[in-house]
């Protein structure tokens, strides 16, 4: 993860729910209440980078905010992923779903979430690879495969999985190009 990596910046910009533990003067605009004090135990969605700083950097025993699990990693989603990883529209949950998951796992100890995420990454990767290596071949055959059943699945990929799709598609395309060149001689 480089400092200028746009994907890691966007990952850190995703919102996570937080609960304020202290009253903060004149921060009420975060809760649609400008000019007033932000009361303690208010729930506000903060970007991950800010929430992490506020939650972890408590000098005293009392921290400013407490973090909660984001809704995209809620038990409901985990159960859906456990049941069938391929049927979940991950992109609708979070654009950088796995990135968010990895960052959250650094903060929370959630053995089960870690297992579920790794398993669904693996299962979905196999599916992605099948789609990616077949996508171009169908087009070359002249048929519009675009309307196939995979479209729904491919639309639900998060950014990391799109990267995988692109990688696989590019390398199998390079392979086909080379084979075509060999034939031409």
């Amino acid at each position: 993860m480089s400092y200028y990596d746009i994907d890691s910046i966007l990952t850190d910009a995703q919102k996570v729910p937080c609960t304020f533990e202290l009253d903060v003067p004149s921060l009420g605009y975060l809760d649609n209440n400008p000019g007033h004090t932000l009361k303690s135990s208010t729930r506000v969605d903060l970007p991950l980078w800010l929430a992490e700083m506020l939650a972890v950097s408590g000098a005293s025993s009392k921290t400013l905010v407490t973090l909660d699990l984001p809704p995209s990693l809620a038990p409901r989603v985990m159960n859906a992923l456990k049941a069938d990883p391929k049927s979940v529209d991950i992109r609708a949950l979070a654009q950088h779903f796995y990135g968010l998951g990895a960052r959250i796992l650094e903060l929370f100890e959630e053995e089960e979430v870690c297992d579920v995420l790794m398993e669904s990454w693996r299962v979905r990767a196999a599916e992605i690879s099948d789609h990616a290596s077949n996508a171009g071949q169908g087009q070359r055959g002249g048929g519009g495969v675009g309307a196939g059943d995979g479209v729904e699945f491919l639309r639900g990929l998060d950014e990391g999985e799109r990267g995988l799709f692109r990688a696989q598609h590019d390398s199998s395309k390079a392979m086909r190009v080379w084979m075509g060149e060999v034939k031409k001689g």
Partner: peptide, 10 residues
């Protein structure tokens, strides 16, 4: 790489 990132904290 993806698996490594997810498993990094563990």
């Amino acid at each position: 790489d993806g698996l490594r990132k997810l498993g990094a904290s563990r």
